[in-house]
Simulated assay, not measured.
Amino acid sequence: MKDKYSGVIKELSDKELLFHLYLTQIILLTISGILGMILMDSFVEFLRLFQWNDKNILLIGGIAGLAVVILDLFLMRVLPSSYYDDGGLNERIFRNRSVLHIAFIAAVIAFSEELLFRGIIQTHAGLVISSLIFAVVHYRYLFNWFLFSNIVLLSFFIGYLFLLTENLWVTIFMHFIIDFLLGVIIKIKYQNNKQEGMFHE
């Protein structure tokens, strides 16, 4: 199954991968809209999920996001590279993007995923169910026990912060920080490796 998945990824161009990424986010937003209309009593209830005037957005969301990235970078250094093998998908998505495009991708993913998994599902089904669904939706991580464990723990952590702050902007900002910084790091590493390869030729 893993080999079949990797084969499908390799056959897709970078442009096609990006298209599928955005399509997935549109699907998640559509599901959020449908579930929101079914489960929420009013639009006011929906708006209560978002509190702009909250220092926790930067304080908790920002610090938590940075902490996750720092821990990730540390683990990448000390653990075998196979532990972080996702079939090359993340590298394919971020390696040739501009920093601005990476920021846009990270913002779209953070908003759509947090709206559905924390704002809609966790609010109505609880932390455990939303965290497990979040992990399973990240299908490619199912083939790597370390990455899957990682995404489960991260999902519970993000869910707990939402439980604590009751503000979706906190978890959206945290999610954005993680995806944006790791995306930029992937881009820099790829460019450095490419330059080293050209230098040694």
Rank of each mutant, 00 (worst) to 15 (best):
F134P: 01
I186N: 13
M76Y: 08
L66H: 00
G65V: 02
L49P: 06
L127H: 13
G36V: 11
F199V: 09
K15F: 11
I178A: 12
I186W: 08
L181W: 07
R95S: 15
F148H: 04
W169D: 00
F143P: 00
P80N: 07
I60G: 01
Q195E: 05
K10Y: 11
V44F: 14
H138G: 04
Y84R: 12
L164S: 05
I102H: 04
K15E: 08
K187G: 05
M76S: 06
A110C: 07
I109E: 11
W52G: 10
N144K: 10
L163M: 05
R118F: 10
L21D: 03
V108E: 02
V69D: 02
L161C: 03
E113S: 14
L12Q: 12
L181C: 10
K2L: 12
D72F: 15
Y190E: 07
L100G: 11
F46Q: 01
V78R: 07
F134T: 00
Q122Y: 14
R77D: 11
F43N: 06
G65S: 03
I151S: 05
G197P: 13
W145L: 13
N150K: 06
E201D: 06
N90Y: 11
L58I: 13
F94S: 13
H138F: 11
K15V: 12
I186V: 15
I177R: 00
D14H: 12
V78T: 08
M37A: 15
L39T: 09
H138N: 09
I102W: 04
I93N: 02
G33V: 13
G61K: 03
N167V: 15
I93H: 04
W169G: 06
E91C: 10
S81L: 07
N167S: 15
Y22C: 12
E114R: 03
V137I: 14
F162T: 05
L161A: 03
G119F: 02
S149V: 12
R77I: 14
V128H: 05
N193F: 03
I34D: 07
I57L: 00
E196S: 10
E166G: 05
F143N: 10
Q195S: 08
F143V: 11
L49G: 07
I185W: 02
E45P: 05
E16T: 12
V184E: 01
L71T: 09
K55P: 06
F157I: 08
H20L: 07
G88L: 01
F157G: 08
N193Q: 03
Y83A: 15
S6L: 14
I26L: 15
I178R: 08
I57S: 01
V78L: 05
G183K: 02
E16G: 03
L168Q: 06
F143I: 11
Q51N: 15
L168Y: 08
F148D: 05
I186Y: 14
L147Y: 06
M37N: 06
L21M: 09
L147E: 04
F180W: 12
I151K: 04
N192A: 14
M198V: 06
N56P: 01
S6D: 13
F50S: 10
E166Q: 03
F143R: 07
S149T: 14
M174P: 08
R48L: 15
L116Y: 02
L49T: 04
M40P: 06
T171F: 05
E166M: 02
E166H: 09
L75E: 00
S13H: 10
I188H: 12
I158V: 09
I129A: 14
R48G: 13
A110R: 09
I31E: 02
I151L: 09
D14R: 14
A110D: 00
N53G: 10
L132W: 09
L59T: 03
V44Q: 14
